[in-house]
């Protein structure tokens, strides 16, 4: 991912293309050109192009997350992976915000470990779990391989993530399984949540599975059994940007795609 080019500078360049620049958000983020086989013809509002500044993760932590995301949901023939869809930024923002601080979770002690049936009992907030686990995993990698996790070859990264997930690698301060649960859960959230949260760029996750996003009125189509519903997915920002036609109740009128998935 190209991070050497700050967003503002990029937007300045975009300005000359006009407000309705038909450059999708993922391409804007990565600096790539469209042409990955997906339909990018929908107008994208400039407002939907998120900042690529990290709010919580350090650059090194973001490298770790980038590497893990490429193992979890890789970029391939089917489309962009989690990293290319901006999920690192989704995770960064989630950790920075209320969820990362466990603001609406119960945080008082004592903290005995408990049984698996009793769920999350770590005294650490998700934010602290990420920071602690990444540091300890990187330290292990440095000791064993003289490299950070992010610099290992991908097969080695994959093997290490599996070991952590299976609870076969013990970290000092936090359960490796707990961290992997968080990381994998957040990856799926970021890949499939509305793009306003920083991931799912250009609705890569929604395009992958065929989810239309913000729903239209399905009153008629719900009874067209077995008929495809291939439409350009709609995000919250598209609605605010007036890039999408609305029906009388404010639902988007989905634009049909020419081809079937």
């Amino acid at each position: 991912m190209n991070r050497d080019r700050p967003r503002r500078e990029f937007l300045k360049g975009l300005g000359t293309l006009g407000a309705a620049a038909a450059l999708p958000a993922a391409a804007a983020r990565t600096g790539e050109r469209p042409g990955d086989g997906h339909d990018h013809s929908a107008p994208v509002s400039v407002a939907s192009i998120e900042s690529t500044t990290l709010l919580f993760l350090t650059r090194a932590e973001a490298d770790f997350v980038d590497a893990a995301l490429s193992c979890f949901i890789p970029s391939d023939d089917l489309g962009p992976g989690a990293r290319e869809a901006g999920v690192t930024f989704f995770i960064d923002r989630q950790l920075h915000g209320a969820w990362g601080a466990m603001a609406r979770g119960y945080r008082l002690g004592p903290w005995p470990e408990g049984t698996p049936q009793q769920g999350y009992q770590s005294p650490l907030t998700p934010r602290e779990v990420y920071r602690t686990a990444i540091r300890e995993i990187d330290a292990l990698c440095e000791t064993k391989y003289r490299k950070r996790f992010a610099d290992l070859p991908q097969p080695q990264q994959e093997a290490l993530l599996k070991t952590l997930d299976a609870g076969e690698l013990t970290l000092e301060s936090v359960s490796g399984t707990l961290f992997m649960n968080l990381l994998w859960t957040n990856t799926q959230e970021g890949f499939f949540a509305d793009p306003v949260y920083g991931g799912n760029h250009d609705k890569a996750g929604w395009r992958l599975v065929g989810f239309p996003g913000v729903a239209a009125a399905y009153t008629d189509h719900v009874e067209r059994h077995g008929q495809p519903y291939d439409v350009e997915p709609v995000g919250i920002d598209d609605m605010l940007g007036r890039a999408v036609e609305l029906d009388e109740h404010g639902h988007p009128v989905h634009r049909k795609l020419a081809r079937s998935r």
């Binding site: 499939f192 949540a193 709609v234 609605m239 605010l240």
Partner: peptide, 13 residues
């Protein structure tokens, strides 16, 4: 609309 069609906000958070 469209804020209420937000899986992350309502179903996850």
């Amino acid at each position: 609309m469209p804020y209420t069609h937000d899986e992350l906000r309502y179903a996850r958070r």
